[in-house]
Simulated scan of single mutants.
Amino acid sequence: MKYIEFKVHASRQGVEQLTAMFMSKGIYELSIKDPADMEDILDKKVSYEWDYVDDSLRETVDKEPVVSVYFEDTPENRERIQDLKLSVMMLKSKELEGLYGWDVDFGRLYAETVDVDDVDWKDKWKENFKPLKVTDRLVIKPTWEEYTAAGDELVLELDPGMAFGTGSHETTSLCLKLLEEYLGEEPADKKILDVGCGSGILSIAAALLGCGPVLGIDIDEDAVRVANENVRLNGVDDVVEITHGDLLQGVDFKADIVVANLMADLVAMLSESVADHMEKGGVFISSGILTEKKEMVENALEKAGFEIKEIREDDEWCAIVAEVGK
């Protein structure tokens, strides 16, 4: 089958705005290539060391991030792509007009299309997804790779499909580290709510770490399907439930810890209602927040009655831990 890759070259700031634009149009299956991830590998910021790095990997470091969406090659989708091109042009125009602030730079926002066969892209991303030790105990292992746990390591098997969440992105690793810490010495006593669960990585990690019941929610039906497959793969389907939903609408569940790896605007929106789904003294761990939007999210959380416990940063991203009133 023939496909069309619609790709947009942007800055890291631009990636978040592009993601929001695509989601507003009902497009949730995105491929984001960020050279900074390659830089982390070259700088050996991950927990393992590389004996050899191919020169082609080094060549990617200086390139700009690219957001890609894939469509079947049909007349209807070609029209849809033209609409997306106009939306990208409008986004750039608004940036130049200063509507997002004069210190904002979304990058070139150069859009292009590439005709591809499904064999060229469907599984190619797997080449760069390797076992990764994300926290003191958690190792994320793709289903097609081999890995033997050492010591008290917990191995989380994952096939993210087209859903977000492999553990390698700063936002996900920040959430995993904080979740492990705040589960504390008695995780079995804690209930977890994962809003925007994507591949199910946070929900599964919580279960492997020994927590009580977990509810994961995602608006994308494909993500729900993938997450449920990963839950069964890890043998935690007796603890984790994954369901389809829009943020917390219609949810009847109270948690001790809520995790939300979303975008800054969605976290701010969620802060208005999330306390109603938390036990007294519960903790809200939110990520997916660019550091430049940290203050905006802080203000939204404090306005909703939360107390900020800590903020952690990794490169241009941050995670915020807030506590609901006791």
Rank of each mutant, 00 (worst) to 15 (best):
Q82T: 13
P65Y: 05
V69E: 07
G98T: 01
P65L: 03
D117R: 14
L91Q: 04
L96I: 03
E95T: 03
M89E: 12
L99V: 02
K94D: 01
L99T: 07
E64R: 12
E49S: 14
W50N: 11
T60V: 12
W102F: 09
D105E: 00
S56W: 12
D55R: 14
Y110G: 03
E97L: 08
E79A: 03
T74V: 00
L91T: 01
K85P: 07
W121I: 07
K92A: 00
G101S: 01
K94Q: 01
L91S: 04
L86G: 15
L42W: 11
W125Q: 04
T113P: 03
E127I: 14
S56Y: 08
L132W: 10
K45Y: 10
E76M: 00
K85Q: 06
Y100P: 00
E112T: 08
V116F: 11
E127S: 13
P131Q: 08
K85D: 04
L42I: 15
N77T: 08
E112Y: 06
D120S: 06
R80V: 07
K130M: 12
L99C: 12
T113S: 06
L99I: 06
T60R: 08
F71L: 05
L86E: 06
F71W: 03
R108F: 07
E127F: 11
G98R: 00
F71T: 11
K122S: 14
W121P: 02
A111Q: 04
F129W: 08
V88F: 00
P131I: 15
Y70Q: 06
L86H: 07
Q82V: 15
K94F: 01
V116M: 13
E72K: 10
L86D: 10
F106V: 00
K94C: 03
D73C: 07
P131K: 06
V69Y: 13
K85A: 03
S93L: 05
L91W: 04
D55N: 13
E79D: 09
K94H: 00
D117A: 11
D43E: 15
L109F: 09
D62E: 08
L86M: 04
D115C: 12
W125V: 08
V116A: 05
V67H: 09
F71C: 10
V67N: 05
P131F: 11
V88L: 02
